[in-house]
Design a protein around this nucleic acid. Structure first.
Length: 285
DNA sequence: CTTCTTGTTACTGA
DNA sequence: ATCAGTAACAAGAA
């Protein structure tokens, strides 16, 4: 469930915690979670981080990239070795020992710290990719929401190309990368757009409004450290929680009063996924 | 026990 | 070509 803001916050944490550290060992507990040759990344230094949509990249000194996708329940937890009078105590996450039941991979660093990739449902993955493989792999991803080339005009052009519902188009990672269910629902609410509206029927003015809300809400969530919602397992790499869930407008608020008009928030399925909206503020054109 | 939930890919049939 | 619908993946909650 980590979407763009959550992955961006993870990127920022890791940039403070493991930049320039050297990986000395990789322990793969669940083979399906790690694709590629683990030996490719041993004894390599973490040189930089980047993010494209919901995917996080760690660029290593031998030009190999470790590409992460967290899907619904993936976590990265970084634990620093702290020597005490008793030696090296067991690493913990919220007072539970690590690795835990959901730990799929450990990355050990030369300074004694460990990065745990936890993923309850095993949908997430890590890939060790060469530059050519990375390019090949990411070529189907659309422009990242925070990329300067993701302009209002580009956004509107993409919407014009599709008669599908705006909700489905927002979630289409080949058009623009990073929008997930949380931010699609809330941006449509803030823009007064019913999620079943055809993408190509939005007026230029309304599309511009939606563009602005998408970016605003993304930046707002990043400043709140992302969303640790009811069902997701999102946490920061130091074990702390995000707080944007306290700022949801309609997401996961079925049956609650609309913030603007007190009408009951409804939930419908679009493309098999839950969509939350206010039937009064978001009218179908 | 069954049903539902999630993001993404793969597949089907219209 | 373009789309809607659905199964698959996996684990846990209700």
């Amino acid at each position: 469930m980590p979407e763009l803001p959550e992955v961006e916050v993870i990127r920022q944490f890791l940039n403070n915690q493991i930049l320039h550290k050297t990986i000395i060992d990789v322990i793969v507990h669940n083979p399906k979670s790690f694709q590629g040759d683990p030996s490719l990344i041993k004894h390599q230094k973490v040189e930089s981080f980047s993010r494209h949509g919901k995917q996080l990249s760690l660029h290593l000194s031998n030009n190999i990239t470790l590409l992460f996708h967290f899907k619904m329940t993936g976590q990265l937890v970084c634990v620093h070795r702290k020597k005490t009078i008793l030696g090296h105590p067991t690493p913990t996450l919220n007072n539970q020992p690590l690795p835990n039941k959901s730990t799929r991979i450990n990355f050990k660093f030369s300074d004694g710290s460990t990065l745990y990739f936890n993923d309850q449902r095993k949908f997430g993955w890590v890939k060790a990719l060469t530059p050519a493989d990375l390019l090949e792999y990411q070529k189907t991803l659309g422009k990242d929401l925070l990329d300067p080339s993701f302009t209002p005009n580009y956004f509107k052009k993409q919407l014009q190309k599709s008669s599908r519902s705006i909700k489905l188009v927002l979630l289409d990672q080949t058009k623009f990368a990073g929008i997930g269910n949380i931010y699609a629902n809330d941006a449509l609410f803030l823009s007064g757009i019913h999620p079943q509206t055809s993408a190509n029927s939005l007026t230029s003015k309304v599309a511009t409004k939606l563009y602005r809300h998408l970016l605003d809400i993304t930046r707002e969530s990043i400043s709140h450290g992302g969303s640790t919602a009811k069902d997701n397992k999102y946490i920061h790499p130091d074990g702390s929680f995000g707080s944007h869930q306290y700022h949801f407008r309609v997401y996961q608020k079925e049956g609650e009063p609309c913030l603007q008009c007190s009408t009951c928030i409804e939930r419908i399925k679009i493309g098999g996924r839950s969509s939350f909206f206010c039937p009064s503020c978001q009218r179908l054109i």
